[in-house]
Design a protein around this nucleic acid. Structure first.
Lengths: 191, 191
DNA sequence: CGGCTTCTTGATCCTCTTCAAGGGTGGTGG
DNA sequence: CCACCACCCTTGAAGAGGATCAAGAAGCCG
């Protein structure tokens, strides 16, 4: 069941298993996917302190989460300084991560955005003990495009081009990175 | 004196007077202005919990700040629940604000980005007791462009076009908004 | 199987970038 | 006070990168 903007929100959700997207819709109906979350990550940080959900969150596959009430986080934070500091660090890291996405949206061209996206997914899968080179995309081309500020056709085209260049194999949502160094080199390309 | 990425950072800075920009540079040299800060706002939230400065911060005019050591914020947060909650709220609001910028960068065209930017400045000046319709831009066209994901020439052109359309008068860095409702209407334009 | 959503690929168009030139502005030193 | 220089801004012309429009193929589910 999706969580909608404006809903009451009293908990942080630690994702035990599964995959989520969060999105934002403005007053003119423009929609932007703001983040993809996977197991081990924290959902709902943007509602901390306000009790309101400022965006939408939707699971992209069967998922399992652990709800941690804000009130509890605040209470334990007061009692255990090291946890308090961790909460601050997690929130600050989320801000830094957002700045990285802003840099991507503001300065990179389509190929570089896709390469960054795939390398980021790869690293996150690897850290969870999955293959860094072979994985399933849980989201549609349209959702990838929304996240990266591109249209779905462009996403499709760039992925095809990567395949042409021998950087990866792609069969629908199944990705196998063939030339990881080559993908990294895309990021350095002119400009 | 600028603060540079990686510098040790132990304080949050409350801006008493002045104007700042923060920016991020990636490994390939791409630079993005991540935010402009003015009086009454908090600088350095992204270093909270880590003690490292993850970006650059530079004053764009003579400024006056109040340094609040992280250690003090943590200590008082433990003792005063209402302050603890405020810290959380401020951090969470910063995340939400970033999502708004991501939406701008991912979905809006040049005119809409500039209109959003000007309206945002207008509102912030108004809240501080300054004129909402007439103010000085502290940053260059290039810095505006970097923040909005545009080139400086495009910024210049769009501002000229707004003047042509009778939406505002602009003389170098001095802006006078003539038709505020018209500027807001730009946001709703097709798409 | 049939209907739906998602994905791919092509052709064309449009927005913004790039490249280039010239004009303003402000600060410094003679 | 004016000349000079560095930086910033404006405007034009040409080009590129994605968007848009359109058609069809492929996967998915009842």
């Amino acid at each position: 069941m999706p969580v909608r903007r404006g809903d009451e929100l009293r908990c942080l959700y630690a994702i035990r298993a599964g995959f989520f997207k969060t999105s934002l819709v403005d007053s003119e109906g423009r929609e932007q996917v703001t983040c993809f979350f996977m197991s081990g990550e924290l959902l709902g940080m943007d509602g901390l302190g306000s009790g309101r959900c400022p965006g939408n969150a939707i699971a992209l596959e069967d998922s399992d989460v652990c709800a941690m009430p804000y009130s509890l986080i605040e209470k334990i934070g007061r009692e255990v300084p090291s946890l308090q500091r961790r909460v601050h660090a997690v929130l600050a890291r989320e801000i830094v991560r957002n700045h990285g996405v802003m840099l991507l949206l503001g300065t990179m061209r389509a190929e570089q955005r896709l390469a960054t996206f795939l390398l980021n997914l790869s690293r996150r899968f690897e850290r969870r003990g999955y293959s860094e080179s072979e994985f399933h995309l849980r989201m549609t081309r349209e959702e990838i495009g929304s996240y990266l500020g591109l249209k779905l056709e462009t996403v499709s085209r760039v992925l095809s081009a990567f395949h042409e260049d021998g950087l990866l194999d792609i069969d629908n949502k199944h990705v196998r990175i063939v030339n990881l160094a080559g993908l990294e080199r895309v990021l350095a390309a002119r400009n």
